[in-house]
């Protein structure tokens, strides 16, 4: 595979994580072109950090029709994930032989040889959350049962070959994500991820990459034992550690890591990663609120109003710019007519 374009998608809050991804990926695959999708408004002071990437695209420049209306339908995670397929499709259109997406909370350790091999043999490469059955009741609940709700494959990684099938997949996925990319597992939806349960059925040439060294995370540690040899190489079940996904480290990911780590290495990796992320932080950006978390006057957007906007065509017809503030705005209307939407959610 001659040219690989690799991309990630993040808000300023995840910039430090994305920089750790960029640096660790560059160390093993300097030949890959790195594209950053910033799903946030441009901010002063970011240029030096963003120079780590070969190319930076801001979400507003991605060509999404009726962009403000699109954004208003989504919370931060939904927006970041909904734009991934369009980003990947763009990389294929630009002529890359293969396009790879990696979540910003991934770090790369050893060369991703099995990914490249899979991409030679298949048009679409996916990694499952788990690749070996569990036998412990809690691990089944935390692993397999969760995958049944949130998706069999983890879409923190996907690789697409630039051929008819690959492009068809990217277009299909883009269509689904841009029409309905919600965090609603009870309805059979989980952002961009749950759709991909269908991929092995809908498309030919799909590889399920079962390399235990790829996409190691707290959700598969119960069946993936890490090791280090005398030369300092890290491995998982005997395969080189390609990339580790630090899902929710610093939160529930820590609990899961402690629960399933089979030795100290996952704890060490998580501690190392948190240290690296802290060191990569850009002052003033890491704790900056998401640009589209509030109306133009800074009032936070209640999640219920995003829901109403998504569900009620009349609202979308009436308010061209849902982020506007002041008289005649969606915000003013909601404050007057739908005060219930501003109430804190039950149980909070």
């Amino acid at each position: 595979m001659s040219t690989i374009a690799c991309c990630t998608s993040f808000t300023w809050g995840y910039l430090a994580r994305a920089l750790v991804l960029s640096r660790t990926l560059r160390a093993v695959h300097p030949e890959w072109q790195q594209t950053a999708l910033v799903v946030d408004a441009p901010a002063a002071g970011a240029d030096a950090a963003l120079a780590a990437f070969d190319r930076v695209v801001f979400a507003a420049d991605l060509g999404v029709p009726a962009f403000p209306a699109f954004l208003f339908r989504h919370n931060l995670v939904e927006a970041c994930t909904a734009l991934k397929p369009r980003l990947l499709a763009g990389l294929l259109d630009a002529g890359a032989d293969g396009a790879i997406y990696l979540d910003p909370d991934i770090a790369v350790f050893h060369p991703l040889a099995t990914v490249l091999r899979a991409l030679e043999q298949a048009a679409i490469v996916l990694t499952p959350h788990q690749h070996v059955p569990n036998d412990d009741e809690q691990a089944i609940r935390d692993g397999e049962r969760t995958a049944q709700l949130y998706g069999v494959f983890n879409l923190g990684f996907v690789a697409i070959r630039n051929d008819t099938t690959g492009r068809a997949f990217a277009r299909w996925w883009q269509g689904r994500c841009e029409s309905d990319c919600r965090d609603a597992p009870a309805e059979g939806l989980f952002t961009d991820q749950r759709y991909c349960d269908l991929v092995p059925a809908l498309f030919p040439d799909v590889a399920v990459l079962r390399d235990p060294g790829c996409n190691v995370a707290s959700w598969n540690l119960s069946r993936r034992r890490l090791s280090s040899d005398a030369e300092g190489r890290l491995a998982v079940e005997g395969s080189p550690l390609g990339f580790y996904h630090f899902t929710k480290i610093g939160g529930v990911g820590d609990v899961m890591t402690r629960r399933y780590a089979q030795n100290t290495l996952p704890l060490e990796l998580a501690t190392w990663w948190r240290r690296e992320v802290a060191a990569a932080g850009v002052p003033g950006l890491g704790d900056r609120p998401w640009a589209w978390d509030s109306f133009a006057d800074g009032t936070p957007i209640p999640p219920g109003l995003r829901h109403a906007w998504r569900e009620e065509p009349a609202l979308r017809a009436r308010f061209a710019d849902p982020f506007a503030a002041g008289p005649g705005s969606l915000a003013a209307w909601a404050a007057a007519e739908r005060a219930d939407l501003f109430a804190p959610p039950q149980g909070a």
């Binding site: 350790f109 280090s228 290495l265 060490e268 990796l269």
Partner: peptide, 21 residues
């Protein structure tokens, strides 16, 4: 001991084990 925890066997300085230590 890598990170004061596990025997590392003094791998080459640029190794992955050293990077996470």
């Amino acid at each position: 001991l890598r990170n004061d925890l596990e025997a590392c066997h003094a791998p080459p300085a640029g190794s992955m084990a050293c990077r996470i230590c």
